[in-house]
Design a protein around this nucleic acid. Structure first.
Lengths: 236, 236
DNA sequence: TCAAAAGTGTTCAACGTACACCCATGT
DNA sequence: ACATGGGTGTACGTTGAACACTTTTGA
């Protein structure tokens, strides 16, 4: 058997779990496949990567097709390579997640390349997805959970100006547990990466909250010390 | 262009950084390549994965060729996919690391499929390796550092019976910093995953140390709480 | 008796955690 | 006036960090 017969017969794809935060829910973008293989089933956006394309370029392309934005925060998570994971041949896939900021795009935009919808993460985790995408979704959500505790990536999901309660809710949704309001604020503010604005929420039927924005300068300047560790219940 | 012309023309490999602990040094196994491409250059053991082989099977095969052992602790780290990273075509590689326990094999064994040697990690990080293997080595060592602080994988590198000083030295080598003896012992023993043996070091020119062994039962039974966080200097 | 590593406790600072009430706004 | 979420401080327990001397063995 020639070298080329045994190898160079496989393909690889990137799949990208796109997380979005929609005012009060953490969501993922899932597509309903309009073509074979797995036509009709729900799946994570992804595509085969061409021979002349880097992995990141592949992900960028998928993101453009899915939400029509470039330059999102993204991170490689894991590579899945079960021999029979793809019906068309040997296709391994490199899983990424990306975070989209609601400030940057309009939900229900017509920009999707095919039928696509946002699903609450908790719901998506229960759905049956095509290929090995359930596993991929789980792995990516798991990574997001870890990452959010060691780096301030939450801001990638929020609008430029946000309240501390919004931020806390986001963390609660990602970590899947309640956080103490006072402790959360103490912790976040002590990191000194938020700039308080002279501006407040408007049109809410209660005391309006102060708006903050993330200070990327300060963040990059600071030596990363502790990470963000919130009150984890000991007895659980 | 046909579908098959554009895709299914790539290959993928696994590369596996094999860490070993040799009495008082943390080492990696590097091979000197005896065949093209990159003949003559130092590299991390690895090989193309065939179409009918899972990623883990590929790694197992590489490990067998390199150190002649199966069933090592291994972990996937990252996938490298630069378009031009391999001279023979589009080959992406999935990087793993594995930990070998000196109790299980003899160093300088004749079992290596080709010229292979153990290099101290610190030294290996300075060498020029083939392909993008410098990057891979760095990524794997970085992962090992992280992992060793959240799971007791250090034991995979030690003989079955070991002293606390050996364990501490190993941690110091992996974390690349000194640890306080008393704090280290307090911490490790408080985890309650070591069984003290009624046995001591022999033939050492000083007070002989008590031997311990890792208690996998206890480890699996315990709910993983804190992780292993040692004294990290604040001001560094 | 000397050299060399083993072994052992206490004190202080930092951090995580639990917890309850008043405030500002819209309806 | 009432409902709703915004905003604030303190006390306690746990954990991390710094630090020095005695013990046991072989040479």
């Amino acid at each position: 058997m020639k070298f080329e017969d045994q190898y160079f017969k496989s393909a690889f794809s990137v799949d990208c779990v796109i997380f979005g935060f929609d005012t009060n829910a953490l969501k993922v973008l899932l597509i309903r496949r309009g073509a074979e293989p797995m036509k009709g089933s729900l799946a994570i956006p992804g595509d085969l990567v061409s021979i002349n394309e880097s992995l990141e370029q592949g992900v960028e392309r998928v993101l453009n097709q899915s939400v029509g934005i470039s330059n999102l925060y993204m991170e490689q998570v894991y590579t899945f390579g079960r021999v029979d994971r793809h019906p068309d041949g040997r296709v391994i896939t490199i899983a990424y997640y990306a975070l989209v900021n609601v400030r940057d795009y309009k939900l229900s935009a017509a920009s999707f390349a095919e039928s696509a919808d946002w699903y609450p993460v908790s719901e998506a985790l229960e759905l049956e997805l095509g290929f090995d995408h359930n596993e991929i979704l789980q792995a990516c959500f798991g990574q997001l959970k870890l990452k959010v505790q060691s780096a301030p990536i939450g801001f990638e999901l929020l609008p430029k100006k946000f309240t501390l309660s919004q931020l806390q809710l986001l963390y609660e949704l990602i970590l899947e547990r309640d956080l103490d309001k006072r402790n959360f604020r103490k912790k976040i503010l002590s990191l000194d990466i938020l700039t308080p604005l002279n501006e407040k929420q408007k049109g809410v039927a209660h005391r309006p909250a102060k708006l903050y924005q993330f200070d990327e300068e300060k963040y990059r300047a600071m030596k990363i010390v502790g990470g963000l560790n919130f009150d984890a219940k000991k007895n659980s």
